[in-house]
Each structure stands twice: as C-alpha cells, then as structure tokens.
Design a protein around this nucleic acid. Sequence first.
DNA 1: TAAAAGCGTTGATGTACATCAACGCTTTTT
DNA 2: AAAAAGCGTTGATGTACATCAACGCTTTTA
Lengths: 195, 195
Amino acid sequence: MFTSLIHYIQERSSIPLSEADISLIEEAFIPRKLRKRQFLLQEGEVCKYIAFIVKGATRQYTVDHKGYEHVLNLCIENWWTSDRESFHKEIPSIYNIDAWEETELLLLPKANGYYERVNTIPAFNEMRIKLDDNQHMAAQKRLNMAQNYTADYRYEELIKLYPEFLQRFPQHIIASYLGITKETLSRIRHQYIKK
Amino acid sequence: MFTSLIHYIQERSSIPLSEADISLIEEAFIPRKLRKRQFLLQEGEVCKYIAFIVKGATRQYTVDHKGYEHVLNLCIENWWTSDRESFHKEIPSIYNIDAWEETELLLLPKANGYYERVNTIPAFNEMRIKLDDNQHMAAQKRLNMAQNYTADYRYEELIKLYPEFLQRFPQHIIASYLGITKETLSRIRHQYIKK
DNA sequence: TAAAAGCGTTGATGTACATCAACGCTTTTT
DNA sequence: AAAAAGCGTTGATGTACATCAACGCTTTTA
C-alpha cells in the first residue's frame, strides 16, 4: 500500500527518505477504499484530506444550478486529489470528488498536524513544491486552451497528454472535462478516426 | 517603496515580522521601474524574479502562431506576477509579461538564494502559502467559467470581482482576458448598460 | 501640424458549437 | 427475465460567438 507512495516521492525528489521519514508517512497517511460513485468530498463539506491515489480513478466536478455536472479534473494512479482551498482555509467546498472506479487512496489528514509534520520531511516538501508548480502550470495551460483553441485541438492535445484517460473514463465524462457536450465529442471522434 | 510590501505581508499573516526579517526583505528585493510596454519577462527567457507590484499594472500573455496575443493575467498594485514554472525549473518561459502603465516593482531574485532565504521568514512563508491557494482556486474558477458560462456572465463576474480592471485596461485587453473579441465585448457592454 | 497608430463601435456574414429528439446497444437493477 | 439506466451515435435546428470590413474619435509619433 505505502510502497507506491514512497516510490512516488523518491522518484520526484533529490533528497532520500530516512527510516524516520518513512515511519512518519506510514503513521500519517490513512488507507481508504472507495467503491464506484462513492464520495471522497461532497459540496458543502470541508475537505479534511489530501488524497494520493494508489489505484483507481476519481473525478472532481461542480454541479450547476440546472443540475449539470462540470468535470474539472480527472485523476488516476499516482495523482493527488483534494480541494486545496477548502483544506487550507477550512471552509466548505464547492466541489465534489468521487471515485469512478474502485479506488484505493492514502489520505493525508489535516487533523493532528499530520499535514504540517509530513511537510517537514525534506523529500516530501521538495516533491510538493514541484507538484504545486506543475499543477499551476497545467491550470494556466488548460485555461488558455479552453479560451483560445477549438474543441478538436483540445481533444488531440488530450490524446497526446493523457491517452490513458480515454480507456478509463466514458466519453461523456471526457467531453465534460474538455468543456463540450458528448454529442460534439462523438462527432469530433468520428472525423478524427478518418484521418 | 518597501513599506507597501511590508504592510502587505503583515496584513496577510498572523505572525509579526521581526527587525531582522525586514532587513532581509530590504536586502533581497530589488526595486525596478518599467515604462509602458517594457518587458519584465519575454517568451524564451528564463524567469529570474518574482515581482511584487508596488504601483502600476502589468499583463501576462502568450502570442499564438498567428501573432495574436492571448491575455492570461492582469495584475495591479499589491499583486504578484511571474512565471512560476520557469522560475522554479529554470526553463524558458512561454509567456510575456509587460507593463501596461508606468510600473514600480519589487523583484525577488532566485539568484544568491534570496528566494529561499525570504521563504524562511515565517510571516512571508505563511503569506506565500495562502497566496498559492488563492491563485490555485482562482485558476480553477476561471477554467470553470471559461468552459461553462457565457461571455455576458463572465463579464458580469469580472465587474463584481475586479471592477478596477475596467478603469485600468482598455477594452480589447479586457476582452482578451475574458477570452472573447473586442467586438463581442463592445456588444455585451452595450446590452449591459441598458439594464 | 500632418500622419499614423490605437481604440471602440456597428453591421453583415459565417461557423463552431449546443440543444433537442430519437434510436440501438450494453450493463445494471429488480 | 423484464425493466431501467447508462452510454454513444446521428440528424435537424438554433445560437453565441468570431470574422471581416468600414468608420469616427483620440492619442502618439514624426
């Protein structure tokens, strides 16, 4: 269970993890399993954990006033998911996060100062800073894509960047992630296959 | 010059700044003035600073293959601007940042470990973490808006959130920031005024 | 002080997408 | 075993926006 997290940290850091670091990680993170459609976080709740995905797949989405879901993020193995703002400020979240597959998570809780303590581990902290940068950059890029590029182009970029998503999520979810309808995605794919 | 930065930090942190902290800040940050259209960062360069805006206004944008500018961010007094990814990874930036008004900045350099040292100031570090959260949240929200809401709605939200922008930037820049053309913005405003 | 550039507006036209509706296939629920 | 729900496709229609073009006003440049 913990080996994939330990491995993940070590791959992304120049600093090795000590025995004590590993013990702290094993103490701090809580293993949890979710079945499909089970929530990690629901709108209105305060986000109490930062979750590392050991196995499975999750969605993060909002529900608008008409009841439509808008997918903001899709996550699979070796990704992190949470609502950062809700977590840090301890305010109710506007997002839902649920499992799309049977999913195994490692939860880093805010409670008991575990988040703070884990961040004192140099290797973890280094990894976290890089992760923040990457997520920030990815968010900028997606905004730019959403505002300035066509749906076809965004789909092609998705195929290049995250081909796994197409195997793991149904088309209507991919469509929502891309900010288009399932009908439009269906037509784009139709054209795309011909090329 | 430094007073507004000191003030900014103290307002956003529960921890006071010591005399030594203030000295370090005054040593680390470099004052700089930019005239209108002068660059803080150009595409292809590595971003060497994180800039605090004391006075003035800046734009961050990309230029696409057709030569069109796409505005990603607009910043005014008491905001920060930089390309985080380029700064941390020391890779060439894909963004341009320039001054839209005569602008006074305080630059925190990566060189000589100043960025690291300033981050050891508890008050600064606390502020920086909050800032990261807010920016992350803002990016998520803008993505959601761009993908799922109409141009009118986005414009109204902009008015609510950053009414100053309308006074500080011309309409074609606001339009680009909103991801629409200046013509569309002009028409939206026309309707909007009637209401 | 003339020319050029920057800025905003308006109209005509074009297009990338959404919406609505119907259908067939598969999977899940009862 | 039947019913329902989930999923993807296709066609007809509608619409929110972009594009292109022309014009007037203001500010900057020469």
